[in-house]
Design a binder for these strands. Structure first.
Lengths: 139, 139
DNA sequence: CACAAAATTAGAATTATTCTAATCTATTGA
DNA sequence: TCAATAGATTAGAATAATTCTAATTTTGTG
């Protein structure tokens, strides 16, 4: 029952509870896949197949539900770079991305490496929810 | 009401020919909708319904074909901000965007208003195809 | 433990997009 | 000019990602 992980079950459960989510079996298993192994960018399909491979009994619908609830609670960040797939990023710190267009691979750029000198303010003083910088790379 | 620079049929045809595309009936009609009226950001569905409204006989498949060929030839730029829809931007200059998450509206920010002080180079000296900055606005 | 609220499920439904195969049209060059 | 052909368009079917539905199961609470 207790698999060797980098994040204890208790920690994961606390993390879920901290944002008001019940630490259910499948959420825990998905959270472990997402947060326990240092994985950064996943698609729903990929996480689903990882779960299946890991012997976790979970449906694709639950994977989508979990990804969206995690995102809504701030545990993940969703990124759209390509109309054919959505990525979910376990790094919720302010940061940016390299996007390798050919392979579809994403790579974090930490915030300190990017200096934005000037940005216009949105009209009507509307609040900015975030600023995304994507560097699209040919290779 | 501003009368945006009306583009003559000849100009549109030349523009298409210049990139190696035949100035066919539906391409011309779509090009006019896209480039003739100062319209900036469209979805395939929206362009299709504009075309239908304008009495242009065109199929949705052709709209997609045209948007993609125009994009491939550099007449448009595709933008993915949301997994549920793709936008095509008639502004192919280097520039950035405000994205109003609630309404799904996009607004250009011209390049001069954005100053990026520092960006990391992609690994292996891979060529950068473009840098996109999106300011996501709550309203 | 019992109960209500929340989560999960399989599979159907939906949506955007792409494909297919037939038909049509623009360009080319004799 | 006109026929040949490469390219474009079409309706509708197919696909893929995602969302929904309605039934069932699990969880946290008292």
């Amino acid at each position: 029952m207790n698999e060797p992980t980098e994040v204890s079950e208790d920690d994961l459960a606390k993390r879920l509870r901290a944002v008001g989510l019940r630490p259910t079996r499948q959420r825990m298993a998905l959270a472990e896949l997402l947060f326990g192994k240092g994985k950064c960018h996943v698609t729903a399909e990929a996480l689903y197949s990882d779960a299946v491979t890991a012997g976790v009994h979970v449906s694709l619908a639950t994977v989508y539900n979990a990804l969206h609830t995690f995102t809504a609670k701030g545990l993940l960040r969703e990124i759209s770079l390509d109309s054919s797939r959505s990525y979910f990023d376990t790094n919720t710190e302010e940061h940016h991305h390299f996007y390798y267009e050919r392979s579809g691979r994403l790579e974090d750029i930490d915030n300190a490496s990017v200096k934005i000198g000037r940005l216009p303010a949105p009209p009507d003083g509307k609040p900015v929810s975030r600023v995304d910088v994507v560097i699209r790379v040919d290779g």
